[in-house]
Simulated scan of single mutants.
Amino acid sequence: MTVQIKTIDLAPKRHTFGHIARRLGEDKPASRYQEATFDIQATTNFHYKPLWEPEYWTYDTRKTTVVMQDWYKPLDPRQYYYAAYNIARANMNQAAERNFAFVEERGLLTKASESARGAIRRGLLPLRHLHWGSNMNMTEICQRGYGTAVTAPCIFSAGDHLGMAQYVSRIGLLLDNQTGSTLDEAKQTWLNDAAWQDTRRLIEDTFVERDWFHLFVAQTLGVNGVLLSLIYKNVESAWDDAGLTVALLTEFMNDWRAEESRWSDAVIKIVAAESEENKALVSGWAKHWIGRATEAAKPLSVALLNDGGTAAIAAGEAALKKAASLGLAV
């Protein structure tokens, strides 16, 4: 008796979902990112306009003054959708957990000098409030924005800021042996310390910006590009003998800044290149918020680094240079 094994090739009737095939073509297989991004947002058959903003539909391109023929053009170069994002963050979190375990087991922060610990309490812990404000901004962009290509990464970014606020809080808990007293102190520093008041005023001013892409520029080029860059880029020199320890605990933030900017820079570049009108609007917003962030960073630069504001000016110039590289007239 003989056994013959035969294989049969079955050609699929279609390679992807209909709404993706209409965009890419019937015979082109789509990636998971494309299937989770293109044309996911609802565009028709809304029941009624929101009572709190009756001049707009739930998803409405008029909620920003910039105009795009297709809001699915600003794709994420990281190609993050839910699964890919969570896998990437799980890997980054594992590295962060190892660093926290290393520092905690050896009591590295408690062995630091009192001056270094005081500098951390004043200069780093209030960032938990700035990250929380950034979380609110990215969530607002997600709910007011248009097109899943932009709004989905925004909610991922909101989750990142929440996670970083928690990391900063954990650094405070390591300083006070888990009592939480440093976090109460950080709140008062955020509310009352003169070095932080321009930063607090800036982030609170962004809360009332209704144009969601204007807010996107303020957050990514202003807050992320200047304020967060200033602090996380200078941690080793800011905290005296604890600088290397803090750098180890904030490694996630620096990795995140590089990764996040790949996406946010790509979005701004594509939107600004769509038309001269878009370029003029985005350029004006970028110049305004980078300027404001630079001024807000100067008191922090003086308080953290005692440098007369040099690091803040350098951070602002770097942000302007990056904005120019994105095609903006700043």
Rank of each mutant, 00 (worst) to 15 (best):
G225E: 11
V226D: 04
R262G: 05
S169L: 07
A11V: 15
P50D: 04
L51M: 12
D76K: 03
T294G: 11
A319M: 02
A323M: 03
A84Q: 13
L328V: 05
N192M: 13
D255W: 12
S264D: 08
E276Q: 13
Y48L: 13
V282F: 03
R200G: 04
F102D: 12
W263I: 13
E204T: 11
S115P: 07
A314V: 09
M92K: 13
G159K: 06
V226G: 03
C142M: 14
R200C: 02
L326P: 05
D160A: 04
A36E: 15
L221S: 08
G133P: 07
L328S: 00
L215P: 01
M138A: 11
G118F: 04
N99I: 07
E35V: 14
G107F: 02
V302I: 12
G107R: 04
I290N: 07
L304T: 07
A84L: 08
A30C: 03
R292E: 15
Y85P: 06
G327L: 09
D27K: 13
E317G: 06
S181F: 08
R170K: 12
W132P: 03
K279N: 13
A280L: 12
P12L: 02
R257H: 14
L24E: 09
A242K: 06
A83G: 05
S325P: 10
W263K: 13
E114Q: 11
V66S: 01
L173V: 04
H214G: 04
A195D: 08
Y56S: 03
A165D: 00
I5C: 04
